[in-house]
């Protein structure tokens, strides 16, 4: 009886030990089950409001060679891809008045009114050559840029199209973070054969406008 009780107790103890030791054997395996690979943390692109585009109208005067200086209006849009450089697209329209010859001779006009419409568009490359600050009153400092542009485009004048090179300079003053006032001087250069021989003409633009950054 005594030995039977001992046997039962021993068997129970053995089972317990076996269970414990079995668990002990499992432990290293259960550690290995954990996947050691750590997924690289993905960097989410953060949405930042970028305001590199500038668009706005302009008004001015265009002095067309051999014709009069006349009213000019148009639209410009620019993409500032660094603090130094920008691309700019511009469109403008004006009209050539009577040539000096037509005025002096008093004869029949050489061109019809519809032929005198002058429109141009072009792409310019700009360089903010002299960035600066302008000081208004004692406490206000406004950002300003003196910039140079060079570009090429098309001029539609006298019922013809001309390859046009544009060079110029301008001044842009930021009234606040997104409204600017600007002043531009440009020379639109193209070869024109309207008077029989091919002449290189210089057509000077003086314009001012307001633009908006967005």
């Amino acid at each position: 009886m005594d030995s039977r009780l001992k046997r039962v107790l021993l068997a129970t103890a053995l089972c317990g030990l076996a269970a414990v030791s079995a668990r002990g054997d499992d432990e290293p395996e259960s550690w290995q089950v954990i996947d050691p690979e750590v997924k690289p943390r993905e960097i989410e692109p953060v949405a930042m409001d970028t305001e590199d585009f500038e668009v706005g109208p302009f008004l001015g005067i265009l002095a067309i060679q051999d014709f009069d200086a006349d009213f000019l209006y148009g639209l410009r849009a620019a993409w500032h891809f660094s603090e130094d450089f920008f691309f700019e697209a511009s469109y403008g329209a004006s009209q050539g008045d009577l040539t000096s010859y037509e005025k002096l001779s008093g004869g029949a006009p050489l061109f019809e009114d519809s032929e005198r419409d002058y429109t141009f568009y072009g792409i310019n490359f700009g360089w903010n050559a002299l960035p600066g600050e302008a000081f208004i009153l004692d406490s206000r400092a406004l950002k300003s840029d003196f910039f140079l542009i060079v570009g090429a485009g098309n001029t539609d004048f006298l019922d013809d199209n001309f390859f046009t090179v544009t060079v110029g300079a301008g001044y842009r003053l930021l009234i606040n973070d997104w409204i600017t006032w600007r002043l531009d001087v440009r020379d639109h250069i193209f070869d024109r054969d309207a008077f029989g021989e091919n002449d290189t003409t210089n057509n000077f633009e003086l314009s001012t406008g307001v633009t908006f950054f967005f």
Binding site: F53, V55, G56, P57, F71, Y73, G74, L75, A77, Y91, A93, S94, Q95, D113, S114, R116, D117, T119, W178, F212, F213, F214
Partner: peptide, 28 residues
């Protein structure tokens, strides 16, 4: 300004309006 053609003027005004509205709504 006498002879600036009307169609060009209208289309420019439209383009201008769209551009400015675009800029303003982007800001808003």
């Amino acid at each position: 300004m006498a002879g600036v053609n009307k169609r060009g003027y209208a289309s420019l005004c439209a383009a201008l309006l769209v551009a400015c509205l675009g800029a303003l709504s982007a800001r808003a």
